[in-house]
Design a protein around this nucleic acid. Structure first.
Lengths: 324, 324
DNA sequence: TTGTACGCGTTATCAA
DNA sequence: TTGATAACGCGTACAA
């Protein structure tokens, strides 16, 4: 299948061997008009020498390229991995350049600038928690850009309906009739969609119920430590975390303290089905989200819409053992 | 920081504005000899117009490119993510094109061929479980290629010392003095390093101890079902799985059956520290492995060694709650 | 249908 | 130190 010669064969080589002009080969490759005879001839030669066009020359000539930079906050997450799969599955002509920002705004900014210097044809930002600096750089970019996760008014985006998610969880809470609830949330300044939107419906549902809210962060260890402290001084029969990861931290604290509250999380993750008991959580379809992101990107890149585009994804509550 | 004009500024533009030849600008960019005067002049203009070289033109001209295709079997795994981070952290001039093979040999083959057609400058294959077909394609490739995970005699590779790992676990087992052990293994034809090498030392240590070996696969659900069946008919006080994921499946079965054996796994994963009890497992340093992979790749690409290169990584046993 | 000639942005060679 | 020019591989007017 793959030519084992060291020098790559070019369109010129093919042309020489076939005894035609390279423009004829180029037409052949791009579906232009070629006679039956020459087509068959070139067919054979291309197959034999396993010719593939030089993508660099193509991009250079065509003044556009099909490399899309994808910035992800982390790789070891089902949500991210599913979105990437969604992008992959819809893609035909593009190449994704995946960059891990390691959940660090500085690295994210650096990644954006590096992608520009690498001449990508566009950028997709997953789970974007934008700083002012990043916003500025993105605004100044001439590239088609699509973000995911935050409802940023000035950017084309695919967002999750976190308000509805919180509302659904709120409804469900009422059926559990808890006596004392622990809310493990994150800073709204760091993540508005998660920290604020997800909890609107929950807090509304808890208006008459004793509850305590703690601000922790996305890391398992932090959530574990923070929840441990809360659980030491108070006894909860329901714990709701802003993400599954956070809830797992809380589960470990409860385990250590021999407490057995119910648990509800957000997000589709390893955790839901690997922890015991399996975790009840509100799940989004990130695979579909990836597809929508790619569709939106193509629209932005190819149609150059004047209005800012906004796509909303919804999800559903999956009840598992942790609330039984 | 980033030019907001739609047309990218080229070396020609810079030259025109600076009133010099483009070759002078090129020399300036590549550290050739330029007078103090013109250097300062170009300095300003490059900064002002935020010029960055067109990487496609560079690659085309230089006849080599700095894009390395990295094929990973899955993305939602700490091991993979850590290796990628290792690659990242050592990298300066290269660009990694990450392709998810979704643990499917067909997709892996397709990925290899697509990377060739995308003119990557080399390929790194993570956790490579090669089929004959893939071996053939790789052998025929003119590109520098490095693989990880399997001790493939004909390929430059970085492997884990699974033999030593198994030996270490074997030693540890003896201190536990188990009465009846369940081994959850995978098909050696699918993964020689895991299925065979890891278990040599373990089986040696269990020569005098009753034990049962079951062949399952890498998926959590399969491991869960397979172990459930075994645990129904027999009672084990120690379960050893070929990977952490497999062990977590077994933990769920044990949980369901109200059994409480000890557990030992392999691999550094989410699981080790998210499941309760935390999992004792033999862990490799995949971050360091990623670095070694990149070093090896550079060596292969730049020095073109005649001998096949082989790097071995070792790890260590981390004892946690699951064997206490 | 086919071929010629040029240009994409860059680097390298060679004179000046 | 500088600049004119050719070349990398490809696509595309334009002419034949």
């Amino acid at each position: 299948m793959i030519n084992s010669m060291n020098k790559k064969v070019t369109i010129n080589d093919i042309a020489t061997i076939a005894n035609v002009a390279k423009s004829t080969v180029s037409r052949y490759l791009n579906g232009g008009s070629v006679s039956e005879h020459t087509r068959l001839k070139i067919d054979r030669i291309v197959a034999q020498y396993n010719y593939t066009p030089n993508t660099f020359a193509q991009s250079l000539k065509q003044q556009k390229n099909h490399t899309i930079g994808v910035i992800v906050p982390r790789l070891d997450s089902i949500a991210q991995s599913d979105m990437l799969r969604g992008l992959d599955d819809l893609n035909k002509d593009d190449t994704f350049l995946i960059v891990n920002a390691y959940q660090d705004a500085k690295r994210e900014l650096a990644a954006i600038e590096k992608l520009h210097s690498q001449n990508v044809g566009g950028i997709i930002l997953l789970t974007a928690n934008l700083t002012d600096e990043i916003r500025d750089v993105l605004k100044a970019s001439p590239l088609p850009i699509v973000i995911q996760g935050q409802d940023e008014p000035n950017f084309h985006r695919v967002i999750m309906d976190d308000l509805a998610a919180g509302k659904a969880v709120g409804q469900y809470i009422k059926t559990l009739a808890p006596k004392n609830v622990l809310l493990l949330n994150v800073d709204t300044k760091i993540d508005q969609a998660v920290g604020h939107d997800r909890f609107v419906g929950i807090k509304a549902a808890l208006a008459e119920t004793p509850h305590q809210e703690i601000i922790t962060d996305f890391k398992l260890d932090t959530a574990k430590a923070d929840s441990y402290q809360a659980m030491q001084t108070d006894d909860f029969d329901l714990v709701i975390g802003a993400t599954d990861r956070i809830v797992v931290g809380a589960m470990q604290s409860a385990f250590a303290l021999k407490q057995h509250p119910k648990f509800i999380g957000f997000g589709q993750s390893f955790f839901s089905e690997t922890v015991s008991p399996n975790l009840t959580s509100f799940e989004f379809n990130f695979y579909e989200t990836g597809k929508q992101l790619y569709r939106l990107f193509l629209k932005v890149r190819d149609d150059k819409p004047v209005d800012v585009q906004r796509v909303i994804m919804n999800g559903h509550l999956v009840v598992r053992e942790s609330t039984e």
